[in-house]
Amino acid sequence: MEQSERRGSTTFIIQEESSAGAFLTPAVSISIDEGDEDDPSCPIVTTPVNVDDEGHPTQSSTEAYQSFDTVVGAIEDVAVGSEFQALQSFYLSKYWKDFEGDENSESTHEQFMIFQNYSKEMAHLIETHVKRHLGNDFSFSNFIERWYGTLEEQRQSNNSSINSLGVHINEDCSQEASHQNPTHNFHMTCEIESLLFTLTDFCKFKELMIDYRKMLEGKTPTLSVTHQRLDLPH
C-alpha cells in the first residue's frame, strides 16, 4: 500500500459528501486550523496530562475531565486530518467492489481480511498520533475507563433507548445528541464513538463499505463514471 497510491485517489472529495463517512465531519468543538499536527505550540500539546506525585494520572479532578477532553480532541484531530482521511479513502476506493449485497447477506473471508487490515492500520494511526501529542506515558486504558463511565451515565439517563437488536452506542448517541446536557464536559462526540467502534466491529465496517458502494452506484452516478475512467489503462 503505497502512500502515493492513497494520495493519488480522487475519492477524497466524494467521501466527504458520503453519508457513510458521517463521522468524518469535523466535530463542532474543534476547528481544523487549531494548529499544525507537528507544531509543538499546538494547544493540545500544551495541555498537560494530570499526574499525581508518583507520576500516575489522577482520576477524579476537574483537570482529569479536561484531560479526557484533550484526548477526545486529539482523536478528533486525527479523524479530520489528511492522513486519516487518505487511509480511509484508500480502503473505500480500493475495496468497495468487494462488498456486494446488503448488511444481512453472507460475508466473504476476503472482506474480513480487509477489515482486519483496516482496523490495524487505523488503530495504529490513532495511537501514534495521540501519543505524539500527549506523550508516550499516555494511557489509553485510563481514557477508555473514563469513556465507559460516561457511556454508563448516558445509558442510565436514557435507559429506554436500547433496541431489540443490540446495545450499540451509536443508537444511544443518535438520540442523546438531540438533548445534550450543555454542562456535561465529559462527553465524547458520536462521530468519535462510531469511529472507534468501526475498528472492532466488522458489521459497522461492512455497513460503511456498503453505504459507500450505494453512493457510488445510485445517488451520484457521475462520480462512479469518474471512478471507472480511473481504471482505464490509458
Partner: peptide, 17 residues
C-alpha cells in the same frame, strides 16, 4: 495494538459474548 485490545475489553463490559 493497545487501542484494539482495550476496545475489545470494553465490549466485554457491555456483556457482549
Amino acid at each position: 495494538m493497545v487501542l484494539l485490545q482495550i476496545l475489545r475489553k470494553l465490549k466485554q463490559k457491555e456483556k457482549e459474548v
